[in-house]
């Protein structure tokens, strides 16, 4: 059974207008997406800003309200759960945020930051708690004494690892990582990505990895869903999507990754030009008359594309 199954998820926000500020339309931040996560895999959700990838992650963890569809976590529909009933699942799903500077409370030392979920969900003596936190801190590569320090005393990479340690305290099954390394320098980014891979095996974690960086997604993910305007454009293994992109938008996205080989830069420019040309000529066969993506159709066992 899949760990998480998202079925026709919708997150719509009303737009108010006119004299009496009544609802005239909806912003369809997420507009009917479906995907599944198998235990132990890393699923990448990729797209540009405003495509709905972050809203999807937040809807799964309950920070945004799903206005339609199902979020089945181990068979239970989280979208229909009341806030109070959701509590049981909050333990199993944790989130890592983009900005390690603002996602930690500056007035809390590391002990209190990491122990907070424990205090909310488990009864532990202060001694047990301390041991547990020290073990976690050591696991993320910081010295056990550092638990009495405050966030500003750490570097960006260390802070992001503290954020990860906090997410790990309750032994979650699923971690939603929303742009976890976007705020970090390349070499620090590498450190955090390596670390996420290590703990995945160790704690048997499933990742929903949300990012705009196609290079990182390719590096980290087993399967990838590409989002555009709240819809899925294409879904498949990293190989399907990067080496055999079918949808015009996917092609454009892949072609936009800067070419690391200076010899091939002109080829790349020409490729982008030809895709732009295709946008002008073949737009109608990729989007319906309202500019909306078609529903996904599978073209192989692993690969599906939003085509007519």
């Amino acid at each position: 059974m899949s760990l998480l199954k998202v079925n026709d998820l919708k997150v719509h926000y009303p737009i108010r207008g006119g004299f009496f500020r009544n609802v005239v339309n909806h912003v369809k931040a997420v507009d009917g997406i479906s995907f599944e996560l198998q235990p132990g895999e890393t699923y990448g959700l990729v797209g540009e800003s405003g495509c709905g990838k972050t809203t999807t992650g937040r809807a799964i963890i309950g920070l945004n309200k799903a206005t339609g569809g199902e979020i089945l976590f181990e068979g239970t529909d989280l979208a229909k759960q009341k806030r109070s009933d959701r509590r049981t699942y909050v333990k199993d799903i944790q989130m890592i945020f983009q900005d390690p500077y603002s996602s930690l409370n500056v007035r809390k030392n590391i002990l209190n930051t990491i122990a907070e979920p424990l205090r909310n969900f488990e009864r532990m003596s202060p001694g047990e708690e301390l041991k547990r936190v020290q073990a976690l801190v050591e696991r993320v590569g910081l010295s056990p004494e550092s638990i009495y320090k405050y966030p500003h005393q750490f570097s960006g990479g260390q802070r992001q690892r503290i954020g990860i340690a906090r997410a790990l305290t309750l032994n979650p099954k699923l971690i939603i990582a929303d742009e976890p390394v976007s705020a970090l320098d390349v070499s620090v980014q590498a450190q955090v990505l390596n670390f996420m891979q290590e703990i995945q095996k160790e704690f048997n974690l499933t990742y929903l990895f949300i990012s705009h960086d196609l290079g990182i997604i390719k590096h980290m993910c087993d399967r990838i869903g590409i989002m555009y305007h709240g819809r899925f454009v294409e879904e498949g293994t990293a190989d399907d999507v990067y080496n055999n992109p079918q949808h015009l938008y996917t092609k454009r996205l892949i072609a936009a990754i800067p070419e690391m080989d200076p010899e091939k830069r002109f080829e790349k420019t020409h490729l982008r030009q030809s895709i732009n040309e295709e946008y002008r000529t073949d737009y109608d066969s990729y989007f319906d008359k309202d500019g909306r993506m078609f529903d996904l159709k599978s073209i192989s066992t692993t690969h599906s594309v939003a085509l007519q």
Partner: peptide, 23 residues
Amino acid sequence: SLLNSIPSNMEAKAKLHVIEGIV
């Protein structure tokens, strides 16, 4: 070191190079 720490420069899931210490 920098070139080795870029994910798109490396094989998928391979360990990335980490520069020891801090700037």
